[in-house]
Simulated assay, not measured.
Amino acid sequence: MEFSDRLNALAAKVANQKSAIQTEEATKNAFIMPFISSILGYDVFNPLEVVPEFTADVGLKRGEKIDYAILRDGEVQILLECKASVGHLKFEHASQLFRYFAVTNARVAVLTNGEVYQFYTDLDAPNRMDDKPFLVLDLADIDESIVPELRKLTKENFDLDSIISAAEELKYVGAIKRAIGEQFREPSDDWIKFFTSRVYGGAFTQKVREQFTALVSKASKQFLSDQVNDRLKTALGASGYTPSLDSQPAAVTSAPVAEKDLDRDTEVETTLEELEGYQIVKAIACSEVKPSRIANRDAKSYFAVLLDDNNRKPIARLHFNGQKQKYLGLFDENKVEVRHAIESLDGIYEHADAIREAVRRYRG
């Protein structure tokens, strides 16, 4: 099994079992040990490679333990500190990592709850762990750009020099991407002022700030919408798909993504890829009904496409969730879902007849 496939398999396991895991020990057994073995490639039952409950005396603290130490040639290379998957990771959880990092030969430290893995090194000061990770792996939303760097930490491809040399760029690029995402979700005063100063010549008063808060938020969502639709047009053109004469092609190819699709007040994060997939399903389905009747609802495990925004009228489900292997869920006459593996968004067009048939069953 390829590295990315193993990563996606573990991500699927975490998604399916997370609700049943309530303790730190259960998190270690169900998620973290499989990560060390199947992803990093180390034998968790070989004490020459992986030492659980690793002990090193730190100053006045005696007998303090770190959850796992990974060894190569008898030297500690990677330290892992684990927390229960039911909670979010906080920087104060890394206190033991800080102490151990300074007294071992480890150059990489990992703080994890089994779903999110934060990787640290010592870019800011030698032998002192940085307070910000240089790489963050979120199994609920895998960033494909970091997978090659993660591979360098595996037993087979371990390349510490390459990891450290790339760490600074990874650290800041990743942090900037996360900061931009936060600003799109909830713009700060500085972000609002930054854009206001470029389009408005007057004083930045409280009244102006309130006015432009809404305008900046709206412009941000429209920008994302435009990016989705530009990519959708490219996909439609590349696929060779031509809607039937009664399918209102202008509405299909140029209608912007509804703002509500990008403005859901929920923990679920809708991706551009899911919105593109939705627009393709909508393009196919509107040969049977008006485009306005095709709606979507995002959930943690799938993105649903519905007729009349009715859960009893499912057309399709997009199982993407940042994973390499994508699935298109389609429904039979008994509303039983069958998943079909697709290599890319263009694969949706191969199931156009089934999508139209689902719409015909509900349209009335």
Rank of each mutant, 00 (worst) to 15 (best):
N310L: 02
V257S: 06
D141F: 00
S188K: 14
D190N: 05
E357A: 14
I280C: 12
F194I: 06
Y241M: 11
Y349R: 02
G201V: 08
P256Q: 02
S217N: 06
D263K: 08
D230W: 06
T234R: 15
A255G: 15
F101M: 04
I176M: 11
V305E: 04
S95C: 09
N311K: 07
R198Q: 11
D138R: 03
T242W: 03
Y117M: 09
K300M: 11
S217H: 05
Q211N: 03
H319Q: 09
A9G: 11
S37G: 03
A9D: 12
G63L: 08
E267D: 09
D143P: 07
K132W: 02
K290H: 08
L150I: 08
F223N: 14
G364V: 08
F223Y: 14
A285M: 05
K324Q: 09
T23E: 03
K177Y: 05
E269C: 10
H88G: 10
V103G: 14
L275R: 04
D73L: 04
R107H: 12
N113A: 10
R72P: 01
T242S: 13
G202Y: 03
K177H: 11
L10P: 01
V252Q: 01
N157W: 01
C286F: 00
K193E: 09
R62Y: 02
I280F: 14
A255H: 15
G181R: 11
N321V: 00
D298I: 08
L330Y: 08
G322F: 00
T270G: 09
Q118N: 08
H88P: 09
S38L: 10
M1D: 15
D346R: 14
A285F: 07
V305T: 01
A9S: 15
P256W: 01
S19P: 11
L330A: 09
E64G: 05
N310T: 03
S188A: 08
A354S: 11
R209I: 09
S188M: 05
D131K: 06
I280G: 10
Y42L: 13
I180Q: 05
G174L: 12
T234V: 11
R151E: 13
R209V: 10
L150Q: 08
E64C: 01
Y200I: 01
E24L: 13
V103A: 13
H319S: 07
S292P: 07
S85F: 03
S254P: 04
V110Q: 01
A140Y: 08
I180S: 04
S188Y: 02
I163M: 03
N321C: 00
A140C: 05
S165I: 14
D298Y: 11
K171W: 07
G347H: 05
A295E: 09
Y117W: 02
N105V: 05
T271F: 00
E337Y: 03
L123K: 04
V199R: 15
R62T: 07
E168P: 00
A84H: 00
G63D: 02
G181M: 02
L80I: 13
Y117C: 10
V336P: 09
D122P: 07
D130Y: 14
P34M: 06
K335M: 10
A69G: 07
K313M: 14
L306F: 02
G202P: 01
F101A: 04
R62H: 05
V336C: 12
N310F: 08
T205Y: 01
